[in-house]
């Protein structure tokens, strides 16, 4: 048990010694907070593109089933 406690302490110390991710690195790998682009524009674009995608697929399906003549 004592060994386990010592081990935990050791790991804890080692974890504490781990270098923290630098602020610029985090900024580049995470989305910026309170960004209008990422909060509003991106989801709107994703939804819009999803709707257009469905429309195009339905059109192509219409061609296959002879509903849309070409």
């Amino acid at each position: 048990m004592q060994n386990l406690t010592n081990l935990t302490k050791e790991v804890g110390v080692k974890k504490g010694n781990l270098p923290q991710q630098s602020a610029p690195s985090r900024n580049r790998s995470h989305m910026p907070d309170n960004s209008l682009f990422f909060e509003k524009v991106v989801p709107a674009l994703l939804v819009l593109m999803g709707i257009v995608l469905v429309g195009l697929v339905l059109f192509a399906a219409g061609v296959i089933f002879g509903i849309v003549h070409f």
């Binding site: 580049r28 995470h30 989305m31 990422f38 991106v42 999803g50």
Partner: peptide
């Protein structure tokens, strides 16, 4: 779209979004 959504939802890797 799916990949962009996954990254957007996890709020990581904006370049991939």
């Amino acid at each position: 779209i799916w990949s962009a959504y996954l990254f957007w939802r996890k709020r990581v890797l904006p370049n991939r979004v």
